[in-house]
């Protein structure tokens, strides 16, 4: 997949300055003097890509320089993350950090090429959204209790689809199985789209999906919500009961934020954090995020760094229990 196209005139302009000054000093002088590249470690068209594009629209206007998305998918979002971790901290390379590459990957990958906390300057949490269990409307069990009973009584157990092994969606299935002892058979797919097709086609009765990717199908009635892995009922889908309400203590959020390579100068961190905050405060942007079921996050750079560190610890036991491990 080709992705890294940047207006080259902009790079030319910076060429001369680049030779004369160390990267950091130059960046501080008049940041941003050049287009900024935001690495999205997922393929175009997915939730992360969508969130990034909604954000960059506003950010481009506020920073006065284009913020250009570069999709670098691969190996559970770790390829793009590793690339940013190794880039110069000049504020011109940013990362759409996320639960996969910053939260889960440190426990999932044995030979990760970066440290999810120390190799980055974490700047802002952009959105959070819960994971949700959805089912084909014709699937008989309604509540989680009924689902558990079905899984125990059906001779073959219960199939639940997910967008892929090691995703937060998969890990919620693992958590669910452990909490209830239900016989759950995880069916991994290559992305949420094909999995959703098979749920609608009744190949698999249930699926664990992130809310933004399921929202449209929930609204159109092609699937039914079974349980939401949020702490309280979700404002966009108040009719879907939470896992906690149904007696299972599982809260699982996907999250997306903006990070940069470690050592980003403080003035740039402050500016970025402020501008992102302003973009996210825009009612139109908030409304768009709300529509897809994502909640806007509000964390200071230090707060986001602590959040990432806490997430790494949170996922460690879950990944361990899932038995998933990648070299």
């Amino acid at each position: 997949m080709m992705s890294g196209l940047l207006p080259r005139r902009a790079w030319l302009a910076g060429g001369a300055a680049m030779a004369a000054l160390p990267a950091v000093a130059r960046a501080q002088a008049a940041w941003p003097a050049q287009p900024i590249r935001l690495v999205v470690p997922f393929a175009p068209g997915g939730t992360t890509d969508l969130v990034a594009r909604l954000l960059t629209q506003g950010l481009t206007a506020r920073l006065g320089q284009p913020v250009i998305i570069e999709n670098r998918p691969g190996a559970g979002a770790t390829v793009g993350s590793a690339q940013v971790a190794a880039a110069a901290p000049d504020g011109l390379t940013l990362l759409m950090s996320n639960v996969a590459s910053q939260g889960v990957a440190p426990s999932l990958y044995r030979n990760l090429r970066y440290d999810a906390v120390r190799d980055f300057t974490h700047i802002a949490l952009v959105v959070e959204n819960p994971v949700v269990f959805v089912a084909n409307p014709r699937f008989v069990p309604r509540s989680l209790t009924e689902v558990v009973r079905f899984a125990q009584e059906a001779p073959r157990g219960l199939d639940i689809a997910s967008s892929g092994s090691g995703s937060t969606n998969h890990l919620l299935i693992v958590q669910f199985g452990q909490a209830t002892g239900a016989r759950v058979n995880h069916v991994p797919y290559r992305g949420a789209g094909p999995a959703m097709t098979d749920v609608i086609a009744e190949v698999v009765p249930m699926m664990s999906d992130s809310l933004p990717s399921a929202a449209g199908h929930l609204r159109s009635g092609s699937v039914r919500g079974v349980a939401m892995a949020s702490a309280a009922r979700h404002p966009a889908f108040p009719e879907i009961a939470t896992f906690r309400e149904q007696g299972i203590d599982a809260v699982s959020n996907s999250w997306f934020g903006i990070s940069a390579p470690a050592g980003l100068p403080a003035p740039i961190v402050e500016r970025l954090s402020r501008e992102i905050g302003l973009v996210l405060a825009d009612p139109a942007v908030r409304a768009r995020f709300a529509e897809i079921g994502a909640t806007v996050g509000a964390l200071s750079p230090a707060g986001y760094a602590d959040f990432v560190a806490a997430e790494v610890e949170k996922w460690r036991p879950v990944v361990l229990a899932s038995g998933a491990q990648v070299d």
Binding site: G4, L5, L6, P7, R8, W11, L12, G15, M18, A19
Partner: peptide
């Protein structure tokens, strides 16, 4: 490739 498609590569020696 440079004028129309804007591919991101150095055009002249030692540009970066």
């Amino acid at each position: 490739f440079i004028k129309q498609l804007d591919i991101r590569v150095a055009v002249w020696p030692l540009q970066y």
